[in-house]
Nucleic acid binder design. Structure first.
Lengths: 134, 134
DNA sequence: ATAATATAAGACCAGAATAGTCGTATTTAT
DNA sequence: ATAAATACGACTATTCTGGTCTTATATTAT
């Protein structure tokens, strides 16, 4: 519960691997998988998602691979999470879908405060960048 | 991902229901379930966990039920989560279990920073209390 | 041109976690 | 005694996740 998935963990480890080497280097998925002991096929999909989210760039074909698009201090943890866990609300929405179900009042007073918690969480994850993890 | 479970949501909704009524009232699980449109058996187990974690108190037998043990501003969101999701790490640990797996260096540099994120998350959830959600 | 090496993409499966149900025991007021 | 409530644990079904496999496409070396 409220735990980062293994995929996000793998993403962080892989990005860290890239960040701790010269910035212009190109890394193949296979190389990172071997170095970090991550299942290759799984990592390949993770890297593809990171590419779609413009965290890294790829060059296809022989001698291809991936490299960081931004500097580590420009890559937010929230961005990495969102790249892999495509767009879910961090905090659950209110489950009651009509006024009568849950509340005697007209205004839903649980959705908004939960949203605040979510927002605070967002801010926290946005303010943490890759360089703080490397 | 990084989403509160439905159970935690139900717990929050139920506690909110109790907090918006006179503090000395006793609520039956069935009453709350009906009012908040939550499956009764599921809510019953949730309330039992909240009782074990001393968020609410119960009186057994006929005319029994549950009532808040503390005032809403004394009930932390983190306490509610922990009551239901028995003791899990919020942020993933480092998955590499030996030096060779992940890093060229001796010290694991990913565990500690992630721990910082986790700590910030803990602080956030501890500093949010039920009264802010009601 | 052809072969080799790489990303790209999607189907597929197994195991874990979650949500929800059911049955039964126990407590207590009437 | 009986009715109404909590207490507790087994069970099921569904969803999520991690991981694998297959195929297609792009690029480069030869």
């Amino acid at each position: 519960m409220l735990q980062l998935s293994k995929k996000v963990g793998y993403a962080l480890i892989a990005l860290r691997h890239m960040a701790t080497h010269p910035q212009d280097r190109i890394f193949t998925a296979r190389e990172i998988a071997a170095a970090c002991n991550i299942p290759y096929e799984l990592l390949a999909k993770i890297l593809q998602k990171l590419k779609k989210s413009e965290v890294i760039v790829s060059t296809q074909g022989m001698r291809g691979g991936y490299s960081l698009l931004k500097k580590p201090d420009q890559i937010q943890v929230s961005q990495i999470i969102n790249a892999i866990e495509e767009e879910k609300a961090i905090i659950a929405d209110c489950y009651a879908d009509s006024k009568e179900n849950c509340s005697l009042y007209d205004t839903c007073t649980i959705r908004t405060p939960l949203g605040k918690v979510q927002h605070n969480l967002d801010v926290l994850l946005e303010s943490t960048t890759l360089d703080q993890i490397v």
